[in-house]
Amino acid sequence: MSDALLKIENLTRYFDVSKPWLNRMLEREEKQFLTAVADVSFEIKRGETFALVGESGSGKSTIAKMVVGLIGASEGTITFDGHNMTGTAGAEMRDLRRRFQMIFQDPFASLNPRWRVGDIIAEPIHTFGLLKGAQVTNRVGELLDTVGLSAKDAEKFPHEFSGGQRQRIAIARALSSKPEFIVCDEPTSALDVSVQAQILNLMKDLQDEMGLTYLFISHDLSVVRHMANRIGVLYLGSLVEVADGKKLFSEPQHPYTRMLLDAVPDLALSGRRRKPVEGEIPNPINPPSGCAFHPRCPLVMPRCKVDPPHRVETPTGYAACFALEKQPA
């Protein structure tokens, strides 16, 4: 057994996006399904930050929600530290839940506006029955201190804080059950850049101190580059490439990764002339046949339009692209 903390195999999720039954009958339409996540597999090692990047409709948030159990998987398995999460329930599941937490995108929505900060942070402690009485108050104070706030802030309500401070509170809540693994769903995309840097620094510090493992979801390539040890690139629900951190940026393999990197505005003013990006993301209800990227791909071959590509090893990780397959001699 490897040291993988989280193992995802052939994870797939459909959503029923059909019209109501009566409309379908009258308009003689079939049921419609949207494949948000298609056959995704990856592993996250203990202590690393694995990032998933992708544009809207890539399925990155759906994967995050499946990992923490907010929505079920249509197919495939999620294994957390050797426990298959789909088959676990009751006390065993409760124990597993304590060990993973989630940080959400919008710090204005992720804290109950009618609760005091102290109660918000203590909710996991109470739910898992970790501490009692004055110990809870002390622990909340410690946690607030850890995330750079003051113990006195426990008495306040969320609206008294700025966006960055709220995200710190959300992080304190996530930490309060002493988890090993945290799913971070776009944790800084609602924040301003100067505050984003504070939160990213805090997350890195916490990881170093507590040995946390992160699944980091983002659409921002430069943030991902800064945070992640390994990166998975999603396109229309499929994992097109997985590569070691910085190498994804220096040696992108999949044509979509290359296109994505070309699209990022260049702050360095290097004057590099970007290759213009072609086309837009197709409708996920009716995705292209074969490789979903083929209508926009500069390397498209006849085969790409028919078969979905398989995973191939690359110098930096693996990717799913026919153009990267070694031609048989």
Partner: peptide
Amino acid sequence: QAARVIGV
């Protein structure tokens, strides 16, 4: 959602 993740 946060409360659901915690298992409340």
